[in-house]
Design a protein around this nucleic acid. Structure first.
Lengths: 228, 228
DNA sequence: ATTACTAGTAGACGAGTAA
DNA sequence: TTTACTCGTCTACTAGTAA
């Protein structure tokens, strides 16, 4: 997204246009943005065109509201600031062990994935992933983790089927090294898929529904050290 | 600050240039900013000129670092995002009762101040302010409070002496209504000066060094309702 | 009051290139 | 390889003004 859009959307959000329609004239917005009424008017039209803003153009005063797509973009910037000011080198994600769909395990145990895991993360995953449903309050932290570079596990083709690229992030559960794996096109936004050389449920004596803390390692250096 | 500066500084901070010199070529920065090497080079020169960046121009690779002034600007934007995504209508500031310098009380009991307090906040302050030193972790929240409009108490002149503008923010301590007052040019960055119609120390039985929570009211509407 | 068009201008950007 | 100059283009802005 264009940075000037983010700037305008942020100011509109501060004026209250994030979950309600708010009456903001182009002059007022211009003042908030440090620009002329004309330019603010144009900016509003651009934001409407980009579907970042919806408007209720009344007779006297327009009322505007930020769309979900715009909130998402703003949250990305917010997460950048959190990375700058809040986070050190690790993030704790709290969640509940979810009933695995099993499918994740099928994917990850494909040999090309396994070989890359061993080369890049130095362990061969146990055949099966632990699924953790992250609590709502920590979804923002999860977004931050996903915004990090991580370790890229390349995709491949086999028997005419495409296995997509996967990003892995070093992590720990109760001091056991593991990795959070995020398929290129993951559908479950709040589910962590975790791979480990051990059978985590057995090793840690945890069952579906138990609460766990997953500590994701964010230090970029640790992900970079290559096979010697 | 120019928004394009903030954008560049944010990306440099994410690349690690916030508390260390970091090697970032103009091409790398250009990639991060979605612009050409030439433009990124120019942006760096502009930031150096504006004292938002310092540089160690080595033979092969330049190393850059963000200045404190730039961090301050970034923190302002961070606080805007916190207001958007974190805060509801109140902020709790934790701190310790500090030994009052007494001077705050002298200022606030000036009649022109007192009259405005009564007109705008509906109470006459007890002659004396309660000083609370906010814990380090809550200084960010304090900045957010100060970034809100608040209630403006106009300055005045008396006997050739200038009494500056003061901003007041509605607040509560242990359910007693009070106000945080911030002189236009306040020197103590971590000290809250609190005024109340009661003698707070006596009423609440608190002494220097005691820990207190000050709940600042951020809802903009409550500050706007005028004298009827 | 508003919103938003047109026209003119300043400045932001990238290509080419030097050091 | 770097950084950063000049220069041409194009875009983003404001002023004037209409509706």
């Amino acid at each position: 997204m264009d940075e000037k859009f983010a700037f305008a959307l942020r100011k509109i959000a501060l004026l209250g246009g994030i979950d309600n329609y708010v009456a903001v004239s182009s002059r007022e917005l211009g003042d908030a943005l440090g620009m002329s009424q004309q330019s603010a008017s144009k900016r509003i039209l651009e934001l409407l065109d980009a579907k970042y803003l919806v408007r209720d153009l009344g007779a006297r005063r327009q009322r505007i509201k930020i769309t979900d797509a715009a909130v998402e973009e703003l949250r990305k910037e917010y997460n950048e600031y959190r990375r700058i000011f809040e986070l050190t080198d690790q993030v704790t994600l709290h969640g509940k062990v979810a009933t695995g769909m099993g499918e994740g395990g099928y994917y990850i145990t494909q040999k090309p994935y396994m070989d890359q895991f061993f080369a890049k993360l130095r362990f061969r995953p146990f055949e099966g992933t632990l699924n953790v449903r992250v609590v709502k309050e920590d979804l923002g932290k999860l977004e931050i983790v996903k915004s990090m570079p991580g370790v890229i596990i390349d995709g491949f083709e086999k028997d005419g089927r495409t296995f997509g690229k996967v990003t892995a992030y070093k992590a720990r559960i109760k001091n056991i090294d593991c990795a959070i794996v995020v398929p290129e096109r993951s559908h479950y936004e709040d589910i962590l898929e975790i791979v480990c050389k051990y059978h985590l449920k057995r090793t840690l004596s945890i069952n579906d529904g138990d609460e766990v803390d997953v500590i994701a390692d964010l230090s970029p250096l640790s992900a970079e050290d290559d096979v010697s």
